[in-house]
Amino acid sequence: MHYFWAFVVGGALCVIGQLLIDLTALTPARILVLFVVSGVALSALGWYRPLAEFAGAGATVPLLGFGHLLAQGVVAAVERHGLLGALTGGFSAAAGGIAASLVCGVAASLAARSKDQC
């Protein structure tokens, strides 16, 4: 059943993004920023954790989950290091995903070439 809810919740979050693209003048870059910042805010309000527990990857894989990850990381770091944790927590929590993207980017730039879309 958790597979089903991961699919439905993940799909639904993407539909929200699609509605924002189609019905507002927001560009994709703005929508992504909005998603991440909203993820931080929802997590701060304590609303995102229940969704993440309910839908698993359906809530953590969309960029809202990236915001949730940042917010959780910063809370854990403040608990351990005090105010310093406010600066270190976010990046520490996000390091895996960002570093993986960076490494993949460098590798792909060496392995692949820009191709036409037609």
């Binding site: 993940g10 799909g11 979050l13 993407c14 539909v15 929200i16 993004g17 699609q18 924002l20 693209i21 994709p28 929508i31 992504l32 998603f35 894989v61 969309p62 960029l63 989950g65 990236f66 995903g97 993986a100 993207s101 960076l102 993949c104 980017g105 460098v106 792909a108 730039s109 692949a112 070439r113 820009s114």
Partner: peptide, 20 residues
């Protein structure tokens, strides 16, 4: 559209594509 934009795979695509 947003189906590939919103998941973390979209973030990776946004990093890898300019690198290439």
């Amino acid at each position: 559209g947003a189906g590939t934009l919103v998941p973390i795979t979209g973030f990776a695509n946004a990093v890898v594509s300019p690198a290439i």
